[in-house]
């Protein structure tokens, strides 16, 4: 039996050496083979954490040709897919515009108010002089508001 085993081993070795791999591959139905593989089971056996840990990100990034990548990006199509309205709303830009408009309107109103208060001051100064009043003796505000100045 031992002799037969050795003989079979030698013959098998010779047969394998003499057979062309291409010939064998041409006889294999790859589709059928792949159908028999359970990919989920295979993936379950992969330790993703370990795989990621082994990846040198810096090296990977160095190998990426960003210029070439950008050339391949269809910007027009990308922009078409963007929801600009949502993007603008999320950026807070409308609130900034409303706030600045309100501030501008407030500034314009204050400018007019200042001119009116100025005219009041000029008129009051004239009346005070005309009536020969002592400006320091005149009350400028009601008692409670004078205290809060």
């Amino acid at each position: 039996m031992a002799v037969l085993g050795r003989l079979a081993g030698k013959v098998t070795g010779r047969v394998v050496e003499s057979v062309q791999p291409d010939v064998i591959l041409s006889h294999i139905d790859l589709d059928a083979l792949l159908d028999r593989i359970d990919l989920n089971r295979l993936l379950d056996r992969i330790d993703v954490e370990r795989l990621v840990a082994r990846i040198d990100v810096e090296d990977l990034m160095d190998r990426v040709d960003v210029e070439r990548l950008l050339e391949r990006v269809d910007l027009d199509r990308l922009v078409e897919r963007l929801d600009v309205e949502t993007l603008v709303r999320r950026s807070g830009l409308p609130e900034v515009v409303v706030e600045s408009q309100a501030r501008l309107a407030g500034s314009v109103i204050d400018l007019v108010r200042r001119q009116l208060a100025g005219l009041d001051a000029v008129l009051n100064r004239g009346v005070t002089r005309l009536l020969r009043r002592d400006p320091d003796s005149l009350p400028i505000a009601p008692r409670l508001l004078e205290d809060s100045e």
Binding site: R113, L116, A117, L119, D120, A121, L123, N124, P139, I140, A141, P142, L145, E146, S148, E149
Partner: peptide, 11 residues
Amino acid sequence: TVTGHYAGAVS
């Protein structure tokens, strides 16, 4: 500042 002061005739 004239906040709280008596308002004049023009205003």
